[in-house]
Write a protein that binds this DNA or RNA. Sequence first.
DNA 1: TAGTGGTCTAGACCACGTG
DNA 2: ACGTGGTCTAGACCACTAA
Lengths: 239, 239
Amino acid sequence: MADDRLPLYQRLRDDMLVRISSGQWALDQAIPPEHELAAMHQVSVGTVRRAIDTLIEDRLLERKQGRGTYVRRPDFNASLFRFFRQLDSQGKRVVPTAQVLVCEKREAELTAAEALGVEQGAKLIYLERVRYVDEEPLLFEEIWLVSPAFDALLEVSLNDFGNLLYPFYESCCQQHVARANETLSIATANETLANTLQMVADQPVVTIERVALGFAGEALEYRRSRGDASSFRYQASIS
Amino acid sequence: MADDRLPLYQRLRDDMLVRISSGQWALDQAIPPEHELAAMHQVSVGTVRRAIDTLIEDRLLERKQGRGTYVRRPDFNASLFRFFRQLDSQGKRVVPTAQVLVCEKREAELTAAEALGVEQGAKLIYLERVRYVDEEPLLFEEIWLVSPAFDALLEVSLNDFGNLLYPFYESCCQQHVARANETLSIATANETLANTLQMVADQPVVTIERVALGFAGEALEYRRSRGDASSFRYQASIS
DNA sequence: TAGTGGTCTAGACCACGTG
DNA sequence: ACGTGGTCTAGACCACTAA
């Protein structure tokens, strides 16, 4: 039973969050109508709407007038597109292709262990991946995933990973990424990285560190992506 | 008279926005209580709350339970702090000091003219400024301001500009900055810039281009700030 | 036409901050 | 004790979507 001290709409929100994260309310599907949820929980429609509002603010739900309220599928490419120019000649977005180079069990290095909340040296799933746009390497990625949730990836052939990892996590490991925190910093390319990204050594590179979280806020993935800073651009609005 | 087709709470929002931007509701002061606004506009308190909610989302107002709803003073240092580490030994934020080097009327260069929506070559107010933390130069800034709104700055001695420009704009020119859009990109330092920032030439620098807008959304300032990328860090949450 | 979310009302009672 | 915003109710009517 939830904490009585919390407002109704927050307890309602928590209940709905469980239904979303458990898959009881499927992605891209409508949730029950507001009046029905109100009856189910013995609250007024206004309170249901308020709970839904908070989940919409967190981008987990989406209202469509006259049709219903839908569970939103997170689109993490939006992040990449925010950070890097990836537009074709018509100015449209391009989905980068990807090649996984390494997939193995490996002892966690310090930054990954801290990000995922495990002991340094604990065994994690480790991936290396390069992402291409128009055959040109754009990003080099090192990815750590918690074990044993993602152990199923070890059985996958390197060529059978698709271009998008998060949908693959869902189908292969039943793990759903709901949100992520990213930190961005700048360094210069060493020999190896410059080689991989086909750029000149000592030129600036952008590093994006991402911790991806499940619906309950548990850390699932730590990812460090590096790319040529000259193709980098980021926009923000402040007030 | 406002458009009848718009929902009440949006017309109410527009009305409140005018009172804020005109200064009728002063910065850091409480606005009238909700029930009073409801009576004034002949609507229910719920509708007033909804209008206030939208202005809070835009960070123009702030609710303080038991005290009232206040007009928020935008804090643009938050932006700088998001972009650069500026923490002292206790981990507290440091307000950088600043020195204005140039303040004159000058023909707009292309990027500034486009950002401010004026003809290239139009006369604008131009400032150059360096910002320091602990005596170390952190940022070099080039600033264009629309004319004639900011002409009063031409009469100010270079040493009389404070460390924060936006409050100075308010007291000196009666111009209020409400929000801004920033774009961030990476380049390498040329001789001159490296000299100003006391860094090694060809090392990466971050460029932050900012267009600052008034309450009505009119462009007031175009600013290009450059800093050593090695002290740069940016965080974002996505979902 | 039936069902959904979108807007709006006119109250009630509670929690918080200040005098 | 009083005034503020915070939560919640039980309706009404409108706008949009679909069959």
